[in-house]
Design a protein around this nucleic acid. Sequence first.
DNA 1: AGAGTATAGTTACCTTTAGTAATAGTTACT
DNA 2: AGTAACTATTACTAAAGGTAACTATACTCT
Lengths: 143, 143
Amino acid sequence: MEGFFRHFLSLYRPLITTLNELLSAYNLSYSLWQVIVFVKNNGPSTLVDISNHYNVEKPTITRRVHRLEELQIVRQIPGKDRREKIIQLTESGEEIYQECRKMITNLEYSVMEGIPKEERFATFQTLPKIQNNIINKESNKNE
Amino acid sequence: MEGFFRHFLSLYRPLITTLNELLSAYNLSYSLWQVIVFVKNNGPSTLVDISNHYNVEKPTITRRVHRLEELQIVRQIPGKDRREKIIQLTESGEEIYQECRKMITNLEYSVMEGIPKEERFATFQTLPKIQNNIINKESNKNE
DNA sequence: AGAGTATAGTTACCTTTAGTAATAGTTACT
DNA sequence: AGTAACTATTACTAAAGGTAACTATACTCT
């Protein structure tokens, strides 16, 4: 498997750049899009929910959510625990989600052009397994 | 293929973090490692060679090479064209390459644990194809 | 041969993204 | 009631890269 990381990481920059360009039409970047996707898929969420899911520190999520609030894509709703800040998509946030979802799914298909179905599927399945292996390794190390 | 980018990009941070931790034993990071690998594989190279290969701007490579010079991992050698700065690995750079190469290859195998050979192979082959698709898309756009 | 153009590298400045440490406010525990 | 734990935020810092302007050198071509 020598060279796997090289292949993986040299794809990262072109991909993230392309996505950021796509999303810039809505003043978004991929890091903001991640928050939108999480809230869309999981319903109203706290910042800790989001930061746990993406393995990212809380201040990072604070910043992302602030920007999404400025863009009026998410809004805070009141909850029982007054320490928590529960956010959900606004109506315009829902619309923007739908439009970006379309663009991104189109791109997801178009970057797969010329790649056999089985290979697509194998790759799709393999990446999360690798991620699990890495995360388990990390957590073993910290014990 | 909806969700492919999500899988891909959520692997990025754990992976790059793990690699940077590994390489920090040699005061390196993955971005510096890329330069070492290029020079190792391609022999003495100019900064433009490197920046073209990684689709990265020239100042970025200037910075990386300066840090590698400080670490005495690469050194400049004289060339015919006096505009160019041709760099190659030093002896200690070669040694560090060998040691890091071992560590990284080990990691490459260990993150693949529990994944069938065919899937590993499919993923290995698919990533560069996706990258080509993206790069072609980009260059079409700029015509 | 000389003027204009292209190329390699560098410098200075800025942007994006994220991490760490400390802190305020709120809830849970006992 | 008082302490501990948790949520979010603020301030500071770091890593990485981009853009524009610049220097020095080489190339072109009439």
